[in-house]
Write a protein that binds this DNA or RNA. Structure first.
Length: 424
RNA sequence: CGGGGCGUAGCUCAGCUGGUUUAGAGCGUACGGUUUGGGACCGUAAGGCCGUCAGUUCAAAUCUGACCGCCCCGACCA
């Protein structure tokens, strides 16, 4: 992609509405724009990252035996009345009325819809288990939208649902999903912890949250790295400024570490909570009608993007982990009016593309400083710098965003080196 | 919803104890020139229903009220 032709509107100044680094940087890097409180547009750069994250999740979900589908966002009121959640969810559900005055909710989660689908199609224990998931825009009329896409009223979620004939089957699938989640968050480059949690509104018997360590997180945990013991921390009296209570590890007695965290995933053992109420049943080996044993597994896809920035940025901008970086490298000809510089950059850009590298070329007629600042702001891991000064020595320069490490190489040496550096 | 803050150019902000001109600056944008390794400099220009409506007044960006919107703290949540 040529920067001169791209729609990546960067900003030098921080919009006053943004308080936390991820929100500020997403706006400044031209990834998102606000349409309304808690409602954001994903611009091409933001969208590209979203798709990268989505693909990592998709690969791991598929590997775990889940099948992707797409469910509607419009949910008939009657379906939610079956579980009593039309009332329970209340004002947090966005509601619309059709031309016949029929009421619909905009799906904040999909237990009702998926259970309805499965109960209509799965009649026998022989058809179980089945694991289905989707990527979809969820709508929640949050009491207080906050921090850009971190807590929006409209957001992208991967939600997955498992249906088993018995508790043993659910436990197997639950563990598969937990492992898939660990793979996903590791691939996203996160420092994260899994913690047992309350089930909240979704409900069920057992649930776990996946927390990314970041000091702008809305929640907090205690954790012990030696023993893998992790606990949710209650919000201290007096809010976030209050002093933090010390806790010792239940296993090794050492003092536990404390960190604020961002919840990016949540798994639930639902049991028969929904299937029983919705009369969603199958016939077991004995010909008896049984409700499905269900699990549900959510990941905040758009929130992952924000969390990644919270965990990896500096004063100059975002530092993308290689796995989810929108581009693998950026080629910076520092003076496009200089023919050798321009030609070398064009040549390198073409070579990298032919090697399958997703590369950005800053072919704008801008000063070096502007190009460096933008490249660092949008956080591309590898900068390839071509200048008059460098070419005089027959060299180009490769500089890493994360470490600042610099390699000076001939053009011929540069391509294999770049390919090595962008490996994930 | 309770508490707090804020709405002036695309962005950051000044002006606000009513009246000085035609509402300003920096950044950004367009054009010209000088520059060219970390957001350069000079000049010119475009860009505003001063959130909306009502009120007070000879006179409102400025005072008052209502409404709308946005942000922050709290309960809810991926």
């Amino acid at each position: 992609m040529r920067l001169s032709q791209s729609f990546i509107p960067t900003m030098k100044e921080i919009p006053s509405e943004a308080q936390i680094p991820s929100h500020q940087l997403m706006l400044r890097a031209g990834m998102i724009r606000k349409l309304s409180s808690g409602v954001y547009e994903f611009l091409p750069l933001g969208f590209k990252i979203l798709k990268k994250v989505e693909q990592i999740i998709r690969e791991e979900m598929n590997a775990a035996g889940a099948q992707e589908l797409l469910l509607p966002a419009l949910h008939p009121k009657e379906l939610w009345e079956e579980t009593g959640r039309w009332e329970i969810y209340g004002d947090e559900m966005m509601k619309v009325i059709d031309r016949n005055k029929r009421q619909f909710g905009l799906g904040p989660t999909h237990e009702e819809v998926i259970t309805d689908l499965v109960r209509k199609e799965v009649k026998s224990y022989r058809q179980l288990p089945v694991i289905l998931y989707q990527f979809q825009t969820k709508f929640r009329d949050e009491i207080r939208p906050r921090f850009g896409i971190m807590r929006g009223r409209e957001f992208i979620m991967k939600d997955c649902y498992s249906f088993d004939k018995d508790e043993a089957g659910l436990n197997i699938n639950y563990q598969k999903m937990v492992q898939a989640y660990k793979n996903i968050f590791t691939r996203c480059g996160f420092d994260f912890r899994m913690v047992q949690a309350d089930s909240g509104n979704i409900g069920g018997n057992l649930s776990h949250e996946f927390m990314v360590l970041a000091n702008t997180g809305e929640e907090a945990i205690y954790y012990c790295d030696a023993c893998q013991v992790t606990l949710k921390a209650n919000e201290p009296e007096g809010g976030q400024t209050a002093s933090i209570e010390k806790k010792s590890c239940t296993a090794c007695q050492k003092e536990m570490k404390y960190s604020r965290v961002i919840e990016v995933g949540h798994t639930f053992n639902l049991g028969t909570k929904y299937s029983a109420k919705m009369k969603a049943t199958f016939l077991d080996e004995n010909g008896e009608s049984q409700p499905y044993i269900m699990g549900c597994y959510g990941i905040g896809v758009s929130r992952i993007v924000a969390a990644a920035i919270e965990q990896s940025h500096d004063a100059n901008g975002i530092i993308w982990p290689r796995q989810i970086s929108p581009y693998q490298a950026i080629v910076l000809p520092l003076d496009v009016t200089n023919e050798p510089v321009k030609n070398t950059a064009e040549d390198l850009y073409a070579q990298l593309q032919s090697q399958g590298i997703d590369v950005l070329l800053d072919d704008r007629d801008e000063r070096a400083g502007v190009k460096f600042k933008d490249a660092d702001l949008i956080g591309i891991p590898v900068k390839v710098i071509i200048s008059i000064r460098g070419l005089a020595e027959g060299k180009i320069e490769i500089k890493l965003r994360q470490t600042g490490e610099v390699f000076k190489l001939s053009v011929a040496e540069a391509v294999p080196k770049i390919m090595e550096l962008v490996q994930v």
